[in-house]
Amino acid sequence: MFYSLGKYILLLRLSFKKPEKFSVYWSEVMREMVSIGIGSLGIISIISVFIGAVATIQTAFQLVSDFIPKTVVGGITRDSTILEFSPTISALVLAGRVGSSIASEIGTMRVTEQIDALEIMGVNAPGYLISPKIIAGVTMVPLLVIVSVVLGLTGGYIAVFASSDVSTADYLTGLSDGFNPVIVTVCGIKAIVYGFVITSICAYQGFYTEGGSLEVGQSATRGVVYSCVMILFMDLIISRMLL
């Protein structure tokens, strides 16, 4: 365990050494941003709308007492969406889509000796292959989470608009009542940490792949599983520290 942690830290240190040619690295960062951000926008949008709608419906169903104001539905949906649903569920989805792609891409380059060729040419392979992915991850995942929050709350509005349990006016009032800005800070910190976790762990699994195509698939699977476990662990740690 400690040996693997040492290799992981060493790989991160090598990844963020001074680049040989900044323009090449910059183009890689832009390419990874498009791949992670634009490529994941569709699935994140669909999931967010439905999660927001379901969360609103379930909250309204549980608040059956006439003594509880209906505006509470909007407040609970807002807080749960910003604090938990949008950052964590989006990160778990991205671990499957983005993480597996990163691990399999780098793993394939390892087993086909493309990484060895880069090192022979004097290129810092971890820096060229991994750092653009990490930079793109910590940049684009927070942006995707922002989109997820907006669409989740929109999904909640659609749910109350289509039902008679809560009026749209009560829902919108609940979104603004009792708003605590700290939940936005927690959401942003979670998104940045999750982006780093997904890209770095999956890149590590791919970089140290040994064998052939079967091992590439196993590395991608391990990367996704370890990323999901670490996302949930960091969710607990961040929530405990900041809330």
Rank of each mutant, 00 (worst) to 15 (best):
E105P: 11
S104L: 15
L41P: 10
V93K: 00
V24H: 12
I82E: 01
P87E: 07
L83W: 08
I36E: 03
T108K: 13
S80D: 00
G107Q: 07
V73T: 02
I57Y: 12
A125Y: 12
T81R: 04
S65N: 12
V123P: 02
Q58A: 07
G122C: 09
I130S: 09
A103K: 03
P126D: 02
G122S: 06
V138N: 04
E28K: 11
K133M: 05
F61L: 10
K21C: 06
G127R: 13
K70C: 08
A60I: 06
E32G: 04
M30K: 15
G39K: 08
E32L: 10
D116G: 10
M30Y: 15
L83I: 10
V64L: 15
D66Y: 12
K133A: 07
L118T: 07
L94N: 13
G74A: 08
L92E: 06
S45Q: 13
E84K: 08
K17I: 11
S40I: 11
K18Y: 06
P132Y: 03
G99L: 01
V24I: 15
V93I: 03
T112W: 10
S45F: 12
T77L: 01
A91W: 02
I89L: 13
T108Y: 15
I134Q: 07
M109G: 01
E113T: 05
S131F: 14
F50N: 02
L63Y: 05
T56D: 11
M109N: 09
Q114K: 04
Y25A: 12
T59F: 05
G74H: 02
A125W: 12
G42R: 11
G37E: 09
I134N: 12
S45D: 07
I76N: 00
I120P: 05
P126S: 03
R78L: 14
S48Q: 07
K18R: 12
D66T: 04
P132G: 01
I76A: 01
M33E: 00
S45W: 06
S23L: 14
I47P: 00
S90L: 09
V141E: 14
S40D: 02
S80I: 01
G137W: 08
K18T: 14
D66C: 01
G127W: 07
R31M: 13
R97A: 09
D79P: 00
R110I: 14
V54I: 15
E113S: 11
A125M: 12
L83G: 07
V29K: 05
A136G: 04
Y128N: 06
Y25E: 15
A95L: 05
V72H: 03
L83Y: 02
V72Y: 06
I102V: 10
T88Q: 08
P126C: 04
P69C: 00
T108D: 11
K17R: 13
V29H: 02
